[in-house]
Design a protein around this nucleic acid. Structure first.
Lengths: 238, 238
DNA sequence: GTGGTTTTGTATCCACAGTCGAAAACCTAC
DNA sequence: GTAGGTTTTCGACTGTGGATACAAAACCAC
């Protein structure tokens, strides 16, 4: 018996894994898209992704699909986002798609295939299928998590000054934040820690900036937003 | 061409929609499970659910599956949770399952089929497939959202006293909260509003409790946990 | 060097949310 | 009435984060 099977009682559908890969590039939050060459949506921009294979999980599938676009090791974070199942989402026939959110630190510059390019999330080109709205979901998820987790580690280089980190947060959040409060809040929460080193001053001079790094390279919930709870036990939640 | 199709390049898989239906019953948070009569996992308890049909979305599918267990109108909230894709999650062959979180207000008592029953989330029986861990995900999601949204509306009756609401929150959160703070916080946030009526005092007497209701019957984010943001614009996020 | 400019780090003030404790309001039972 | 139990309201304390001011450390011009 093949591992792929179905029956009238158990209809089967092609399933694809999609990735919304985001990166802050030059002070702008970009999403990785590739240009479709064939119908449907020829010429429109689509999220990288492809069919789920018989023996892989969705997480493995999205990693495999991305391998043809970037080096997977450059992805500092990958999490499942949502599953789209509108029967009409692909005019060729029904497919179900599970979207993932992937983040690449700002200091990397992956080489992309010819048909693939970065686009500002704030000014998306014409997109294929429901991919535009999936990017919107990913953006909302990222922005929320920047507030109450340490996801920033996946957008920032290994070490950075507060000014550099501020630029990343401003680009990702889409609104202005002050370096002062960013530093104070992230330090108090234990999200950031000083490396002890300092960066050379710019050509205009100025006090040399201290270098910081994220304390943990894995996702942690850090915001004490869990209410109705004694202030002592403000620890782990999802 | 049928709407269900596949090819060697586009393998297809049976897809099922599962529901984690939660309700506070007698001061305890319960999940609805049904007892499997056939292998695999005969005798173990499973989440309600079933195959995704060719022309329905996952949301419609989960509603349809639940219709055989409870009246769907009793579900005050339903949201997508996550998609499980481990090739070995079903020993009969590969399936992909998308789980939903459903909530039923405490004042309802749906009639269940003979094979279906409520179980305390804190003491699950032997569960089938990966359903035990899916219940865990649902629980984490509910607990987080109780803190920063008004999901409580989906667990509470149309009107209630603060003491009754406290019991619901305690059961759902799994830790103690004081009625005083619950009332003040939810009132301040605009989540709760007074009906003007009051409940008759209990048999031991006491000041009659005021009756409250949730201000909105749909999900709203209410916690000002969006940090790095001017205090003026503390409005919408996901 | 000296002073001015630029950039970063630190200290404070203020507003506001949330916890805790206690007092006040209100009912029933006797 | 009075006692006891329950709910509501109120005030004080704490902690978090936004905004602002100021101090520290580098460069540049002269």
């Amino acid at each position: 018996m093949p591992s792929v099977w179905s029956s009238p009682e158990r209809p089967a559908y092609p399933h694809q894994a999609l990735a919304v890969v985001l990166q802050v590039r030059g002070g702008r939050l970009d999403v990785m898209l590739w240009r479709r060459g064939t119908e449907p949506f020829a010429g429109a921009w689509a999220l990288p992704g492809g069919p789920l294979l018989p023996d892989e999980t969705l997480g493995a599938s999205v990693a495999r699909q991305l391998a043809s676009k970037v080096e997977v090791a450059q992805l500092a974070h990958l999490e499942q986002l949502e599953t789209r199942s509108d029967p009409a989402r692909d005019p060729r026939g029904r497919t179900v798609a599970t979207a993932y959110l992937g983040l690449i630190p700002a200091h990397l510059d992956p080489v992309l295939p010819d048909d693939t390019a970065w686009h500002a999330v704030g000014a998306l080109p014409v997109t294929a299928f429901d991919h535009g709205s999936i990017v919107g979901s990913a953006l909302a998820r990222l922005r929320a998590k920047l507030s109450y987790t340490n996801v920033g580690f996946a957008l920032a280089p290994p070490t950075f000054t507060v000014a550099e980190l501020r630029e990343i947060y401003v680009a990702a959040l889409g609104y202005d934040v002050t370096a002062t409060n960013l530093q104070r809040v992230l330090l108090r929460r234990g999200v950031l820690e000083a490396t002890g080193e300092q960066a050379p001053p710019g050509r205009a001079g100025g006090r040399p900036a201290a270098l910081y790094r994220f304390a943990s390279p894995t996702l942690q919930v850090t915001d004490p937003f869990a209410v109705f709870r004694p202030p002592s036990a403000r620890a782990a939640h999802d």
